[in-house]
Simulated assay, not measured.
Amino acid sequence: MNIVEFLQDLMSQVPALVQPLIVALAAAIPFVEGELASVLGVWAGLNPFVAFLAAVAGNFMSVFVVVGFGARIRSAIVDRRARQRELVNADGTTASAPAAGAEVVKPESKGRQRFRRFLVRFGVPGASILGPLALPTQFTSAMLVATGVSKAWILLWQAVAIVLWTGATTAVAAGVLALVAG
C-alpha cells in the first residue's frame, strides 16, 4: 500500500466535516505547518481548496496565538526593566539607574545576531516570506515579536507568507496527485 492510499483509507474512516479540522490541527504544529498539512489533506482525498483553507486557518491561528502571547510577555518584560531602572530616593524623588556602562549587558547570541541582520536586510515582509525556508512561522513570529515589531505588521506578513507557501504546496500536491492517479 502506498502513502496516498493509506491516507485516503485513514481519512475515509473520519466524518467529512471533521476532515478539514484534522488538517487545521496538523497545520498548527511547527514544522508541519500549512505547507505539509495541505499536502497531506490533498493526498488524503480532500478537495484541494478545502485542504488549502483548513491548512491556512490552522497555521494562522497558531501564529496568532504565538504573537498575542509573545507581545504580552515582551510588554511585561519591558515594563519590568523600566521599573527596575528607576530608583526611588528616600525623599520620594526618582533618579535614574547607574549608567549603561555600569549595567551587566549580555552579549547577543550568534543566532539572534544573524536574525537581526536578516531582519535589517529584508525587513518584516522578507523575514516572513523567506523565513519558512529555515524556520517554522511560529518561531519566526516569536522572534519578530521579541525584536519589538508591531503585532499587526507581523500578523499581516505572516498571513501573506502562509497563504503563498500553502497555496504553492497545495497546487504542487494536487498536480502530483493528478499525475500519479492520472
Rank of each mutant, 00 (worst) to 15 (best):
R116K: 10
E108G: 05
A127Y: 00
A99F: 13
W153P: 09
G45W: 05
A82C: 09
P20Y: 01
M61W: 02
M143Q: 06
T93K: 06
L21F: 02
A161H: 01
L21H: 00
V63A: 07
S96K: 14
Q84H: 13
R114L: 07
S96W: 05
L25N: 06
R114S: 07
L46V: 03
I154G: 05
A76Y: 14
V50G: 03
N2P: 09
V14A: 07
V50P: 06
A127H: 00
L40G: 05
E103I: 12
N59S: 08
G182E: 10
L179R: 10
K110A: 10
T93R: 04
F115P: 00
S38H: 01
F52V: 03
Q158F: 00
K106Q: 11
I73E: 09
A54V: 02
P98N: 11
Q158D: 12
V105K: 10
L46R: 00
Q13N: 14
L87H: 12
F118Q: 09
A27L: 04
L119T: 04
A76L: 15
G101V: 02
F115E: 00
L155E: 04
L53C: 09
K106S: 09
A178W: 11
W165L: 05
G182A: 07
V176I: 13
V172L: 14
F139N: 06
S75V: 14
G123D: 11
L164I: 14
I162W: 01
V105Q: 08
I154V: 13
L155H: 01
V180E: 10
A55C: 04
T169I: 14
V163A: 15
R121G: 07
L130K: 01
Q19K: 12
V172C: 06
G148N: 08
V23F: 00
G41T: 00
M61K: 08
A173T: 03
L130D: 07
L87M: 13
S75R: 15
L156A: 15
F139W: 11
V4R: 06
Q113A: 08
R80V: 12
R121F: 11
L25S: 05
E86R: 13
L53Y: 05
S38D: 03
A27R: 01
V65T: 10
A37W: 00
Q19I: 04
L53Q: 02
A37L: 02
P48D: 05
W157A: 04
G101H: 14
P48V: 01
R72Q: 15
N2A: 07
F31H: 10
V163Y: 07
R117T: 11
I73D: 01
I29M: 09
T170C: 02
